[in-house]
């Protein structure tokens, strides 16, 4: 799938065995987006000419030259990538600190907001760390953790995790997030 890391466009994928990798979204051959590619087993194939890359980003097969063992210099540009607590964390360089412990939560859903992360964080009223928000339980809605990812000016992804609970409460949480998005975006239009 396609994502972003700062201003970098990124392809994130998971192999059949569950290994995740994040690369600059560009095939080293002709620049096609690797996020348009497809996964077979432990390899990702570019959709354009079928060049196949292993989890470490090294080219392993060039279909137009089936007998060629591709030189190891043909590589995708890899980002640091960590799969923890149901969240895939990516960084353009190896980060100095580990991702925060999110506590006892399970992934709920990801939403795109037509609002920047500052505007999203401001709506919750608490901004000690504008990229990680913890919301208390509210009516049927369980406690939530929101991870805010900037997608560009005026656009963000909100990755929501919820305290483990029953299906009804998770549905309520999903609807509460939509309400939160509507109110956040309306704020931007009013401003």
């Amino acid at each position: 799938m396609a994502s972003v890391c700062g201003t970098l466009e990124v392809a994130v994928w998971r192999s059949a065995s569950g290994r995740v990798a994040a690369w600059v979204d560009r095939c080293p051959h002709r620049g096609m987006r690797l996020s348009h590619g497809f996964v077979r087993g432990e390899m990702l194939s570019c959709i354009y000419h079928g060049w196949r890359f292993d989890g470490a980003g090294r080219c392993r097969k060039i279909p137009a030259h089936p007998d060629l063992d591709p030189p190891e210099t043909i590589r995708t540009q890899s980002l640091a990538c960590l799969d923890a607590q149901g969240v895939i964390w990516i960084a353009s360089e190896a980060p100095a600190v580990a991702p925060p412990d999110l506590g006892n939560v399970v992934p709920l859903r990801s939403l795109t907001f037509e609002a920047g992360i500052d505007a999203v964080a401001a709506m919750t009223g608490e901004v000690p760390d504008r990229s990680l928000l913890r919301l208390d339980a509210h009516g049927p809605v369980p406690p939530l953790v929101l991870l805010l990812q900037a997608l560009g000016p005026g656009r963000s992804a909100v990755h929501a995790l919820a305290a483990p609970t029953g299906t009804g409460a998770l549905v309520a949480a999903s609807r509460a997030l939509e309400d939160f998005r509507r109110r956040t975006e309306a704020q931007g239009i009013a401003a």
Partner: peptide, 14 residues
């Protein structure tokens, strides 16, 4: 698409 996405999220929860 937002409506559809939310419905599919709820269906998956069920």
């Amino acid at each position: 698409l937002r409506e559809l996405e939310s419905a599919l999220v709820e269906n998956r929860l069920l």
